[in-house]
């Protein structure tokens, strides 16, 4: 099972490579990828250096071009595909059927992965994408239980990658418009959920408030820590009760079910977090490398070390972690 780690810049890429990633995934400095944050991502010179650094050490590089192109700006997506292909990367991660169609036609020898943003959750959807665009891997949205992941792998010929650690999207990726409903910009159209320019923090006598596009998505007491301002993790009133109506401010950690993930036949496990720090990438990659090696040597005896959980807890967003949808009770 391949360990796929995030890199928002060159130091992060080196940290992932040095700490045991089998592959790193990166993006260009624009809205063609789903981590379109200021100061993040790679220019051409950095990509060339990154690919060289990774390939010299036997590590693969994937480029995510996984937002949805609109007619205005379409050339940005096709140019991004051409550039990625030109750098000799090991795969391009795509979501948009139009961009996939372009890439498959123009670069038939480049490996295409279907992004989690492509929203393929079943064998028929994956089969459709495989037949038309020759995808070599599918990253499945965080909606399936582990039993469903195992079954999916039996039913499809396309290797399956899942998310193992990091922020937890509650909705089917690629089909969530909550961010644009509040702010006008979504992962699909802009490459970011809750874009920073639309987030407002305000101290009030009632508590600290977070607004997205003017909408109050959370109000917490001054002693509570503030998480990433996604509106799906705020507190709202439902039936007269104040509560987390969609999800708690948790993040995903599947370390405890790693043997089951391995047994299911998952081809690659992905760490979320291109927007995080070099320290995050170093520590998470290191822990997951050690865990994967130990689990692959002897899955029956695998028990996550306390030290791993401590390290991961330090870099997790939010106070709690969850196995999320992989566990049926989460649904």
């Amino acid at each position: 099972m391949e360990l796929v780690c995030p890199a928002g810049n060159l130091p992060m890429l080196k940290a992932a490579v040095d700490n045991g990633a089998n592959a790193v995934y990166i993006g260009f400095r624009d809205d063609t990828n789903a981590r379109h944050f200021a100061g993040l991502n790679f220019n051409d010179k950095q990509i060339a250096q990154g690919v060289q650094y990774a390939h010299d050490r036997g590590v693969k590089v994937f480029v995510a071009i996984n937002t949805y192109a609109q007619p205005d700006g379409w050339e940005r997506w096709t140019a991004a595909v051409d550039r990625a292909a030109g750098f000799g990367v090991d795969a391009i991660i795509l979501a948009d059927m139009g961009v996939l169609d372009y890439a498959a036609e123009r670069h038939p020898n480049v490996n295409l992965h279907l992004s989690v943003q492509g929203s393929a959750t079943n064998p028929a959807a994956i089969g459709f994408m495989q037949r038309h665009f020759g995808i070599k891997r599918v990253v499945v949205p965080r909606v399936l239980s582990l039993a469903q992941v195992a079954h999916l792998i039996e039913e499809t010929r396309v290797p399956v990658e899942i998310f193992g650690f990091g922020s937890l999207c509650v909705m089917v990726e690629g089909r969530c418009l909550l961010s644009s409903y509040a702010s006008g910009q979504s992962p699909n159209t802009f490459g970011a959920c809750s874009p920073a320019a639309h987030v407002e923090w305000r101290d009030t006598p009632e508590g600290q408030e977070t607004r997205l596009g003017g909408v109050l998505i959370e109000r917490r007491s001054h002693s509570e820590a503030a998480g990433y301002p996604t509106l799906c993790k705020g507190r709202y009133e439902v039936d007269g009760e104040l509560r987390h109506a969609i999800e708690q401010p948790t993040s995903l950690n599947t370390l405890d079910v790693l043997p089951q993930i391995l047994a299911a036949g998952v081809s690659a496990i992905k760490i979320e977090g291109r927007q995080r720090s070099t320290r995050y990438v170093s520590q998470v990659t290191k822990v997951w490398r050690e865990a994967l090696d130990m689990c692959q040597r002897n899955p029956q005896a695998f028990r996550p070390k306390d030290s791993w959980h401590q390290i991961l807890a330090q870099v997790s967003e939010g106070a709690q972690t969850t196995i999320g949808p992989y566990e049926r009770t989460w649904h």
Binding site: R142, V143, L144, S145, V170, M171, V172, R175, C176, L177, L178, Y181, V238, D239, R243, A245, I246, E247, P325, R328, T329, W330, H331
Partner: peptide, 21 residues
């Protein structure tokens, strides 16, 4: 009312403290 998102979780059941199953 705009269709904005889909999830594995049933939010109606979640807010009634029930599991989806």
């Amino acid at each position: 009312r705009l269709p904005l998102a889909y999830s594995a979780r049933c939010f109606t059941a979640y807010n009634r403290n029930l599991g989806k199953d």
